[in-house]
Design a protein around this nucleic acid. Structure first.
Lengths: 134, 134
DNA sequence: TGGCAAAAGACTTGTCAAGTCCTGTTACCT
DNA sequence: AGGTAACAGGACTTGACAAGTCTTTTGCCA
């Protein structure tokens, strides 16, 4: 359980590639896809989500491509993962207080919240910089 | 992401019900299913897995049913979850060293291992006793 | 040995991951 | 302006797996 989807995996590979390029060097989608070995059309979807959430900047037309929106040390693994996988929720009842009808009786609730916080904390502390400087 | 399946959710509900029964009181599957509001046939599958992994004892025939295999303070949430959901693996490459062909180059690897350990540690520290003594 | 209850396996249904494909939109270049 | 280079977005396909259901078998007890 708790598995990252392939999309999440691809997303991480792709953005690490971007982060390891020279600053301000625009990368083509085709180039990234080949480099990290992911179907280009699928990677396109992923980078569209990156673009929407603002961790990547995109440019169209000739000379276009993708660029990291900020310095690698400002982008965390948490941002990357949540951009494509959605929020980290060990159990759907964690989010909204009213969701779980057995809310008050549910003794497991606080445990899931703890798990969520731990994982978010961990991923939030890892930046792209640390993932590139091998 | 990282969501527990409904099966896992049901499993927890079911075993907490068992744990909150008087010691040595055998519970019928039908009784548990009604109490925790889960389809009986589905809960049956779950308890079969419990039985196989040994956290629950089962008895057939008249007067049969289910019993916690040990005291509630000896059974952890981790055991319960892994019994029905399989091992906690944030990424498939975490387990076997050879699985990931980009093994050596993969800088994310240690992060997933950390996540795995944190979550397992958390869940492993919660026992059924703590979940019943509200 | 009859009936009660769990075990086991085959089957169904629906959802979602993992792509593909096609068309649109924007930007540059001549 | 027209053509081409690239990303954006939507619709669609396929396969796997979650979530059950149904039926038969096995074991136990009275």
């Amino acid at each position: 359980m708790m598995e990252l989807t392939r999309k999440g995996d691809y997303a991480i590979r792709g953005i690490i590639y971007l982060a390891s390029q020279p600053p301000n060097k625009i990368s083509l989608l085709s180039e990234i896809a080949t480099a990290v070995d992911v179907p280009q059309t699928f990677l396109a979807k992923i980078f569209q989500q990156f673009s929407k959430t603002g961790i990547v900047k995109s440019f169209r037309g000739t000379g276009g491509g993708f660029l990291l929106a900020g310095p690698p040390e400002d982008i965390t693994l948490l941002q990357v993962v949540e951009a494509v996988e959605g929020p980290i929720l060990p159990n759907r009842c964690v989010l909204k207080p009213g969701e779980c009808e057995r809310d008050l009786t549910c003794t497991v609730h606080p445990v899931w919240r703890q798990v969520q916080q731990q994982v978010r904390g961990l991923l939030g502390n890892i930046t792209l910089k640390e993932l590139t400087t091998k």
